[in-house]
Amino acid sequence: MTHEHHARAVGVSRNFGTVRALDSVDLDVAPGELVGLLGPNGAGKTTLLNLLTGLRTPTSGRVELFGGDPRTPRNRLGLGVTPQETGLPETLRVHEIVDFVGRHHRNPLPTHELLEQFGLTGLERRQSGSLSGGQKRRLTVALALVGRPKLAVLDEPTTGLDVEARHVLWEALRQYHALGGTLLLTSHYLEEIEALARRVIVVDRGRVLADGSQEYIKSRVDTRTVSLRSAALPDLPGVVHREHDGDRIRLLTRDADQLIRELVTSGADFRDLHVAGATLEEAFMTLTNDGTPTNADVATVDRSTS
C-alpha cells in the first residue's frame, strides 16, 4: 500500500447536535513524524482522534488512515491506540490483555519484552483491576505499541503519572519513534509536548489555530522573556508581564533589545541577565486566548500548569 500520509483529515467538520466540535479541520501526519496536538479541554482533540481511528465518522469532509477509510478493519492494521485507563477489563490479567490485543496484529512484540520496556515486569499475573493508576496508565500505552504500529495515537498518555514514571514513558516513546514509528499525541502537559513533539498543532473550539514546528509555533508569539536578578527594579516601558520569584524577576516583552537598553539606562542594579524566546506554554496560551495574540493575553499566562 502506498500513501503519502499515515493519517489525514481534509476539510473535516463534526457536529454533535447543534454543537460544532470540529470546524473544517485539515491535518496530515506523514510517516516518521512526532506530532503533538495541543488545546484546552473541549477543543476537539479527542473528537479528531476518534475520527482518525474510525470510532466516529465526520459530518462533512474526509478522513484517511494509511490512505483508506479508518472504519475498514484492514486499514487499522498499522494503528495502535491507547485505551482509556478506566476501561481495562478488570478481571483479566496483565499478560492476557497484552496477548489479546497483540493477537489482532500480524507481528506483535513479545509480551515480556513489552512489559519490561514499560516497567511492568512482575505484574504479568495481576488482574488489571488491582493495578495502581500509574501502572494502568503504562499498560494502556504498552497496548498501543504491542502490534508494532506504524502510527501510534496516544490520548493523554501520561496524565496522572509522577515525574519519574512520565520520563520512563517518554523514553519508551522516543525509542518507538527512533525505530521509525509515527506518533500523534495529545497532552495536558506542555512540558510533554515540548519534550516529545517536533511538530505542534494547536486546536481550539474545533479549529486549527497553528500548525508547525515547535520553533514556528513559538515564533508566532512575538514575545521574549527577560530574566534577571535585582533588588529594586523600576517599572520599564514595553513590559507586558512581570513576575517575581524571590529576587529573580521575569519580564515578558515584545522587544527585548529595547527593553535591555531601557534597563541599562535606568541605572538599576541587576545581575544574572538571561534572554529567552517564549515557551510553548506562552505560545499556547496566547494562541488559544480568543483569536489574535494581544498583550493582555500574554499577561494571563498561568504559571501553575508548568
Binding site: 481511528t53 474510525g54 470510532l55 478493519p73 487499522r76 482509556q84 476501561g87 481495562l88 489482532h104 497496548l143
Partner: peptide, 14 residues
Amino acid sequence: AKPWHAHLRTLPVG
C-alpha cells in the same frame, strides 16, 4: 457501557 468496548473498535477487526 465500558470504554474497553470502544477500544476494541480501534483494533483491526470487524
